[in-house]
Design a protein around this nucleic acid. Structure first.
Ligand code: NAD
Ligand code: NAD
Lengths: 209, 209
DNA sequence: TTCACGCTGTGAATCGTTTCACAAACACTG
DNA sequence: CAGTGTTTGTGAAACGATTCACAGCGTGAA
């Protein structure tokens, strides 16, 4: 119903609105939010309309109410624990950031095959052996996971996660995962981002000549 | 001229083509590449057409030639060094991955304000004090950078990088950077990715009911 | 009370991207 | 060497997302 683009942007808007609220402002206009988010006022209004909130022509949007409306769309009804597979360099960074950060979305279990890491607590999160994956995920009712294992191990990790009940994945490995219908995968491809930046950094310069 | 979507996809195709080449295959059809990349054969053909390569109706695309054609678009004419600002949890992960990885795009200098990190070599990369940023970037002719500092410090890091000559940024901080025209910014927003996954994981399940 | 202003909500236009659909090309077969 | 089957390249259609443009409204000023 709501497009992935809109979902992505309202997540950004909410973060910005929290900053605005922290400054003591109670209202914002679409053009202010647009400037902060790097998009157009029309885009902001369309997105706000999509999630069913509406503001006042005179005062714009009520910051607190808009945050609540966005949260009603984005936030899971109750706390959702996230699993992390692969506690390497990137996995540890994710742990340091997403353990206990948000009340609604936080990493609650990590998995690795390395005996050095297994059964230790890393950045405040218990690291389990991969063999316990299905059990821990079922017990905790985990439905989203972050994949941060080497490319060669990613597909198998995805398969195990999905079979244990996970239906949303953030994948850092540079491979396209095969998952059944109904499972949502978001690929975060840093190498691609860098190559794109390198390309457009050159292109843009040439434009200026 | 070439859209950012196409640039992103050909980066993925190239990675897949290298895997295909490693298996000893010399030719691929658009439908094979499409299956691997998770898109349609028509999309692959359109992208290949866009970069000016063409295959044979009978044998599909020559793997080596297509890799070369993509590289002619993506690769900088000579080696491009990348700078990293912020050697924290995420920055170290980036270093471990992008130091010496590709012959064309590799992190060659890191910057941090923490005296503990400055002037040490981390994952094979020298970490300089932020005050040396402009000098090192100019000396090395660096034109792309990765920002991995806390949100509050990101805008200032971007400003300094750009003033030193950088015109392409990969930004991990959850803020929208203000940069002059001609500077390309790619935001990698992991929190947004997670929120999107959580949302669509729920949505998809409901669809099935 | 009336007016003028500036913002929202939204139908319609526009824009960029993806997909369709098919002619032309080629290899293989008998 | 004609026939068959499969694939490419690409104009044109379809699609989805963004932007335009303006009616309608509430507010503050006079
Ligand atoms: N580090 C980066 O900046 C970066 C950038 C882009 C992409 N990536 C990708 O992210 C992934 C992780 O990168 P990294 O740098 O953290 O790698 P890493 O080698 O530091 O860590 C990988 C971890 O996964 C564990 N592991 C390996 N096989 C496993 C399995 N079958 N089950 C469970 N755990 C397993 C290892 O023990 C290790 O702890 C890789 O696919 C990499 O390509 C990383
Ligand atoms: N770690 C993650 O998984 C993750 C996920 C999403 C977003 N992020 C974002 O990425 C950024 C980095 O995250 P992190 O987890 O590595 O943080 P971190 O706190 O571990 O590291 C930040 C590093 O930046 C350095 N630093 C601070 N101010 C600086 C300045 N002005 N100039 C140079 N260096 C400076 C610090 O010394 C530290 O080494 C943050 O903006 C964070 O919001 C991180």
């Amino acid at each position: 119903m709501v497009s992935d683009k809109t979902i992505g942007r309202i997540s950004v808007y909410r973060r910005l609105l929290k900053e605005v609220a922290a400054k003591g402002e109670t209202n914002v206009f679409s053009h202010q939010l647009a400037t902060m988010a790097g998009c157009t006022p029309a885009q902001v209004r369309r997105d706000v309309m999509t999630i069913g909130y509406s503001g006042s022509p005179a005062r714009g949007y009520d910051v607190a109410e808009l945050i609540d409306s966005i949260s009603a769309v984005l936030d899971p009804p109750e706390h959702e624990g996230i699993a992390l597979v692969g506690v390497g360099n990137l996995g540890r960074a994710m742990l340091s950031y997403f353990v206990g950060r948000s009340p609604r979305l936080a990493i609650v279990a990590a998995f690795d095959e390395d005996p050095e890491k297994v059964n230790r607590v890393i950045h405040g999160c218990r690291c389990y052996p991969v063999n316990d994956m299905e059990q821990v995920i079922r017990e905790r009712g985990i439905r989203e996971a972050i994949i941060a294992v080497p490319a060669a191990a990613a597909q198998d990790a995805a398969r195990r996660l999905v079979s244990a009940g996970v239906n949303g994945l953030v994948n850092f490995a540079p491979v396209r995962l095969w998952v059944p219908d109904g499972v949502y995968v978001e690929n975060v491809d840093v190498t691609m981002a860098l190559e794109r930046v390198a390309y457009f950094a050159r292109e843009r310069v040439q434009e200026r000549v």
